[in-house]
Amino acid sequence: MASSGETRRGASEVLRVEGLTVQYGALVALRDVSWSVHNDEILGIIGPNGAGKSSCFAAVTNAVTHRGRTFLDKADVSALRTFDLAGRGLRRTFQQNSFFGELTVLQNAVSAIFRDFSTDLATSLFAPWREATTRRAAELAAAQLLDFFGIARQYHDQLPGDIPYGVQRLLSVALAYGTGAKVLLLDEPAAGLSGGDMKKLADVLIGLRKRNLALVVIEHHMDLIMSIADRIVMIDQGAMLATGTPVDIQRDPRVREAYLGRDE
């Protein structure tokens, strides 16, 4: 884990947000929040319920009206649509599982990577054998994606609603990652998990970091975020209260008073 103020050797800043402010009527949900994340790094965001953490992700992905600027690979993407940001590699998950319930697990994975394997109309009409070959390649890549996320082959032909909850959480992360992700924003990925399922999730997130992905993780499970994060940002009442390594955060009396000492 990188020490305070350091980044990993060769790491570069992938995502930077400056002065994010979100207001819902008279309620200021987020106030002048700024942070950055590098490739090969996990940035944790913690804070009490209602602190503004999810509003932060909504602002970063331009899914809510806000003030402030967002830079992806040093390019200002503050005005891009959420869909276009995803195409550039900025992806996110939500607190609830997100997948197509009527498709199998494998079909869901194929849908997440279809852009890299789609064929044009002419090919579909006049060279159907080529389309079939492309479809098989997409299914193979989708199976490999699921394998990487620890989703066993026995689940690939099942509907997401029929697989264990812990596997559903991994599937939601896998679908958000897809192919070509540069930054992955994860909103409470460990919600509802415990024991072995949480260990599997931690292993997956560390594996993604080793792939030079930049991860930003909102999480209430302190044991998990303290064990995997390189740096942590603490938000309370919409404002940044502290930032630093997990050790710095645990020692900060403001954090202990505002969050770590409270019942979750």
Rank of each mutant, 00 (worst) to 15 (best):
F71T: 04
I113Y: 11
F57W: 03
F71V: 10
A63T: 12
L146V: 02
D84G: 13
E102F: 14
L106M: 10
F114Y: 02
E102A: 13
K53R: 07
L80D: 12
T134I: 11
F126D: 13
T123I: 13
T65H: 06
A138Q: 08
D73T: 12
S55M: 10
V105L: 07
S98C: 12
R92M: 05
I113N: 05
L90A: 09
G101H: 12
S54W: 05
S118C: 14
F126V: 15
D76F: 15
G87T: 12
D116G: 14
T82I: 14
I113S: 03
L106G: 00
D73A: 09
R81N: 04
R92G: 03
F99N: 06
S111N: 10
V60R: 00
T82H: 00
S111F: 03
A112Y: 01
R136S: 09
L146G: 01
P128N: 15
V60W: 02
L72R: 04
V110S: 14
N62W: 05
S78H: 05
F117A: 13
A137C: 12
D84P: 14
F117E: 03
C56N: 04
L80M: 11
R115Q: 09
L121E: 11
R136A: 10
T119V: 14
A122S: 10
L145Q: 08
R130F: 09
A137E: 01
A86M: 08
N108H: 07
D73G: 05
D84C: 13
S78K: 11
K74C: 06
D120T: 12
Q107C: 05
S98L: 15
Q144V: 04
Q107R: 05
L121T: 09
F126K: 11
V110A: 15
F94L: 03
V105I: 10
L140E: 03
Q107G: 15
S98I: 09
V60M: 01
S124A: 15
L90I: 00
N62I: 02
N62K: 04
N62H: 13
F114Q: 11
E139G: 08
R91T: 12
A122C: 07
A59G: 02
L80S: 07
L125C: 08
A138M: 09
V110W: 02
F83H: 14
L121I: 14
R136V: 07
K53T: 07
L140I: 12
A75W: 12
E131Y: 09
F117Q: 10
V64E: 03
N108V: 05
K53D: 07
A122D: 12
